[in-house]
Nucleic acid binder design. Structure first.
Length: 1003
RNA sequence: GCGGGUAUGGUGAAAUUGGUAGACACGCCAGACUUAGGAUCUGGUGCCGCAAGGUGUGAAGGUUCGAGUCCUUUUACCCGCACCA
């Protein structure tokens, strides 16, 4: 009987699906275990072999935990709102919902082929109305909440209103907008309802405000900070500019400290935590106020070095700073305005690219030092960022590299004083930036102090004169939550007098309306501006035609949609109770499943999804809707699987004056000889020497020769490397199938190309690159499944290397794993059927099995999946050598293998039980079997093959009983003739004997 | 610039945590069988050397009887952040 993966895999996939083998229950005596994959965006390209890597790992853990007696939740779903479907809709008019559904069914087909133990009954799709109605509900909760710094958590907005009614806002300690005007309770009660609403927006956890946003004209939408990479949009690479717009924002900054501290309690990789710490960007320092001379204005600055306050030499404002226009003197006005104008014109990207150029202008104004009352010139410069701190700095050139450079650049110009040095250090060459190793001088009451003491004293003194206070600053900005897109969650919001109103929970979902066109409207409204039925009837409580808007009972609805991260910021909780219509999940389900025990996904979500998800989770926890402070206890980033791109090398075609076309010539990989020859000939020709050449370089050369005779031609000695579709090559020998290449639709231009071979073959070059359609290096898991089976794919992906590491895919290596499965199969069957016996296995067989149980158990607990596969191979090799066909070994072996290769394991299990798959009423699947327990008694050895070293170098080994004392061992070793030969008459100075480990003789 | 990570044969990688470096595979070499298949099986394979032997985990130093593993210095590459005050 032959191993036929296609047949058994299809059977078992069907059986598991029909029997709901992997459905989790929400009430169980068993302990729970929640294994989650980051759910995919269903793109049109389908899966390549890189996508399932993490899913396979999590599936192994899920199956293993089931064997170990856990009630395992292992769900899967789709992050199905997103840009590609929308862009496809813009181009084709195809509704994104249709595209998305088609993509999902293809994804599902591909996933099913790999045999995952997902509980598909809990599938979620973020673009389904029964899902996003809860996303809308969470949004409303955020709107109805504020962050109380006193209780250090989010509270209902009602508690804030009560406080306003009783005491006004003077005692409120909230995370809110800057520059809040204070009011008393009587003020509050006297405000109109609209005024009250406007004030509350400054406090709500999601709020509508005019803010500087990242506007991406290329995409026609705003973007969050994490959606911008190197100054351009992450998607499409379009430029991004700063623009003031009224947008929804999320007050994530309220959670900055908790998001930071929470990292200490979760088991994530250090690099991921560092990314988040970096992104949150906590810095501790002080706010200092500088009065502007002759103005009733104050410049507030944030500094991490209040101890250097006496070193302030000048001040710099960001060009966008509000005060710039107010304080600039008449003489400086023109220069300042032209500088501000020039800065505004530069894109974010230009400003970032150009960090070395120092530029700035003196405003003509002076600030006053809080202690010395000396006057300090105020400059503007684009090295100061409007978005960080207060957009202004106190420049201390002696202690800051940038201030130092700025001061020196403008040294001697009007408005730039001599650098003040307040360190007992030399700063003639460069600034002294360290926080230790100095004493402050020329610093009045701070003299003699270092950083720590100086900072403390400085803050105390500033507080005393009411010119500053200690302050912690975070880089983390509030997240813009509006997108000018169609394919996203609509806001459950309508507007009365321009003020946002929430739609009641019972009317959710507010479904995405149909539109004619998916582009923004002609007057620049978001795509939902195209919807004709998009108004809210506050009496009937339904969405009605826009024409009915009277702003009395029928009002316009919000035209923006939510960003991509909205739906993914809570989805792991939906899986706990995926069909609950009332709530996003029941309290019981949430209490049972708690949070995710193991989360596997890509590291690209470090500062996006993973930060927002933690934020929403903490918020929901505060409001009593989520059970734990952190959503993901342990997180592993699977490494990227890279593609092995193939290349052909085309000679640069020589442009021939229109009479005949140049032909394409391709050189094989090791073509340097040919190329040199070519080059030599060209050089000689150019020098005017007529060289007779043979024809081996092809017609390209003949054309070139012809051209050369006419005039001077300089010839660049490089070939163009062109990506070749992997279908055109032999993956093992790297030989190009020239016929396939010529007939491939992609390469019609090269139909008549010539190929210069080496050893009769055309060899393509190979290079490791990211797997991508455009590089033609994509390997499709379906094809691997069809050819070798899903078990082989699963084992091979794990065998490739450590899960977290990036590694290239090489299909050639897969035969090793396939051969291994065939070998495993042959332990159970020969050509005629089962060869399993009930004989008692030998000690060696038990040893091999139990070594494997031990190793695989440890490996799964440590997420070291590649070494398990090696161990399976070792075990099967050993058992084959031992001719082991013993049930007592082969039954447990099937279970140990089943997390990795579930189909073959289940098939072997079934056949060991001598059943047939049809009518398996009493069949108890392998997934219900307990995992074999490692018993150390089978591994006990009585002897050890000792390595015998001389001066640390291993010379020979020696088999000795393990119960010998070191002294006995020494006697035996010293008497051994090989020892005597090695020592050559010398007596060793020292003999080191570690029983069970090593023998080392030092001479 | 700051932070994190990686470095071992022709290739992917192991190494019980300080104890025989290169397990397990791919590839390659030799052989067996064969209905000549990209099947199956056996043996070999870090490098130099006919061999004895030497040498070897990015580089240099150190600790140790013993270092891929620990310490110091350093180089290259990858990832994240970056005029963050």
């Amino acid at each position: 009987m032959k191993y036929n993966p296609n047949e058994i895999e299809a059977n078992w996939q069907q059986y598991w699906s029909e029997n709901q083998t992997f459905a989790a229950t929400n009430n169980s005596e068993k302990p729970k275990y929640y294994v989650l994959d980051m759910f995919p965006y269903p793109s049109g390209a389908g899966l390549h072999v890189g996508h399932p890597l993490g899913y396979i790992a999590s599936d192994i853990v899920a199956r293993y935990k089931r064997h170990k007696g856990f009630n395992v939740l292992h769900p899967q779903g789709y992050d199905s709102f997103g840009l590609p479907a929308e862009q496809y809709a813009i181009q084709t008019g195809q509704h994104p919902d249709k595209t998305t559904k088609e993509n999902i069914s293809r994804y599902r087909e591909q996933l099913d082929k790999i045999g995952f133990s997902f509980d598909w009954s809990r599938e979620v799709r973020t673009s389904n109305a029964d899902y996003y109605k809860h996303t809308q509900w969470i949004f409303i909760q955020l709107f109805e909440s504020w962050y109380n710094n006193n209780s250090n958590k989010a509270e209902s907005i009602c508690t804030l209103i009560q406080e306003f009614e009783k005491n006004g806002n003077t005692n409120v300690n909230a995370v809110c907008d800057d520059n809040i005007v204070s009011f008393s309770s009587s003020d509050w009660n006297a405000f109109s309802s609209d005024e009250q609403q406007k004030i509350l927006l400054h406090y709500r956890l999601t709020y509508l405000a005019e803010t500087e946003v990242n506007w991406c004209p290329g995409l026609g939408t705003v973007l969050a900070n994490d959606e911008i990479v190197n100054g351009v949009s992450e998607r499409g690479g379009h430029p991004v500019i700063r623009k003031k717009m009224t947008q929804w924002s999320m007050r994530i900054s309220a959670y900055a400290e908790r998001l930071l501290q929470g990292l200490n309690d979760i088991d994530w990789t250090e690099s991921l935590k560092e990314s988040q710490r970096n992104w949150i960007g906590k810095s501790v320092g002080a706010m200092v106020s500088f009065n502007v001379k002759n103005h009733d204005e104050v410049i507030d600055v944030f500094t991490t070095r209040p101890d250097t306050i006496f070193g302030v030499t000048f001040m710099t404002l960001a060009p966008e700073h509000d005060l710039v226009a107010k304080i600039t003197t008449a003489e400086q006005k023109e220069a300042i305005e032209s500088y501000v104008h020039a800065t505004a014109k530069r894109s974010e990207r230009e400003r970032m690219a150009d960090v070395k150029t120092i530029s700035g202008v003196f405003t003509g104004a002076y600030a006053e030092h809080p202690f010395t009352k000396e006057q300090i010139p105020v400059w503007i410069g684009d090295y100061v960022l409007a978005g960080y701190g207060t957009g202004a700095v106190m420049a201390v050139p002696c202690g800051d590299e940038r201030d130092y450079a700025f001061a020196n650049f403008f040294k001697g110009t009007n408005g730039m004083p001599e650098i003040k040095n307040i360190f007992d250090q030399d700063i003639s060459e460069e600034a002294f930036g360290a926080k230790e190793g100095f004493k402050l001088v020329d610093s009045d009451f701070l003299n003699g102090l270092g950083y720590k003491e100086g900072t403390k004293k400085a803050i105390e003194a500033l507080e005393k004169i009411n010119q500053g206070k200690g302050k912690t600053n975070y880089r983390l900005r509030d997240a813009v939550f509006s997108r000018q897109r169609y394919w996203g969650e609509p806001f459950p919001v309508y507007y009365v007098n321009g003020l946002p109103q929430m739609i009641d929970k019972k009317h959710l979902p507010i479904a995405l309306p149909e539109v004619e066109k998916y582009l923004p409207t002609e007057d620049g409204q978001p795509p939902l501006g195209n919807a004709t039925i998009w108004a809210w009837d506050s009496v009937q409580c339904s969405v009605v035609s826009n024409q009915l808007i009277d702003n009395k009972t029928i009002f316009p609805l919000e035209l923006n949609t939510m960003p991509g991260w909205a739906g993914s910021s809570w989805y792991w909780m939906r899986y706990m109770d995926a069909h609950n219509e009332e709530d996003f999940a029941s309290k019981e389900a949430l209490d049972y499943w708690q949070n995710v025990d193991l989360y596997i996904g890509g590291s690209e979500h470090a500062t996006g999804h993973l930060l927002y998800a933690r934020f929403w989770n903490k918020f929901l926890k505060d409001r009593g809707f989520a059970p734990t402070e952190e959503p993901f206890k342990k997180l592993i980033n699977q490494g990227m699987i890279l593609g092995m791109s193939a290349f052909v090398y085309r000679l640069p075609s020589v442009s021939i004056s229109d009479k005949s076309k140049s032909r394409n010539v391709f050189l094989s990989k090791n073509h340097s000889d040919v190329l040199m020859k070519f080059k030599n000939i060209v050089d000689l020709q150019v020098q005017g020497k007529n060289v007779e050449v043979d024809n081996e370089l092809g017609s390209q050369f003949l054309l070139l020769k012809e051209e050369l005779t006419k005039k001077d031609v300089t010839f660049d000695l490089v070939t163009n490397a062109i990506h070749v579709d992997l279908l055109c090559i032999n993956d093992i020998t790297n030989e190009l199938d020239i016929e396939k290449f010529k007939n491939h639709p992609l390469y019609v231009d090269y139909k008549d190309a010539e190929f210069i071979l080496e050893d009769g073959k055309y060899i393509v070059g190979r290079e490791v690159e990211k797997m991508s359609k455009s590089k033609y290096n994509v390997v499709n898991p379906d094809e691997i499944c069809n050819e070798y089976g899903a078990d082989t794919l699963r084992l091979y992906e794990m065998f490739l290397g450590p899960l977290e590491q990036a590694k290239p895919w090489n299909t050639a290596g897969i035969t090793g794993v396939f051969g291994f499965l065939k070998k495993l199969w042959r332990l159970y069957f020969d050509d005629n059927g089962s060869i399993v016996t009930n004989d008692e296995p030998t000690a060696e067989m038990y040893k091999s099995l139990h070594k494997t149980i031990k190793k695989v158990t440890e490996d799964i607990e440590n997420f070291s999946f590649n070494t398990s596969v090696s161990q399976f191979m070792i075990c099967v090799n050993e058992l084959a050598t031992l001719k082991c066909h013993h049930r007592a070994i082969l039954e447990p072996l099937a279970i140990v293998m089943s997390p990795y290769a579930p189909h073959i394991a289940e098939e072997l299990w079934l056949r060991l039980k001598d059943s047939k798959i049809e009518g398996l009423k009493d069949y108890k699947g392998i997934s219900e079997q307990p995992f074999p327990i490692f018993d150390p008694k089978y591994l006990i050895e009585s002897e050890k093959e000792y390595p015998v070293s001389f001066n640390g170098k291993m010379r020979f080994t020696m088999k000795l009983p393990l119960d010998l004392s070191p002294k006995q061992i020494e006697e035996i070793v010293m008497a051994d003739e090989r020892t005597i030969a090695q020592l050559a008459g010398n007596t060793p100075k020292k003999v080191i004997i570690i029983p069970g480990k090593i023998i080392n003789l030092v001479g």
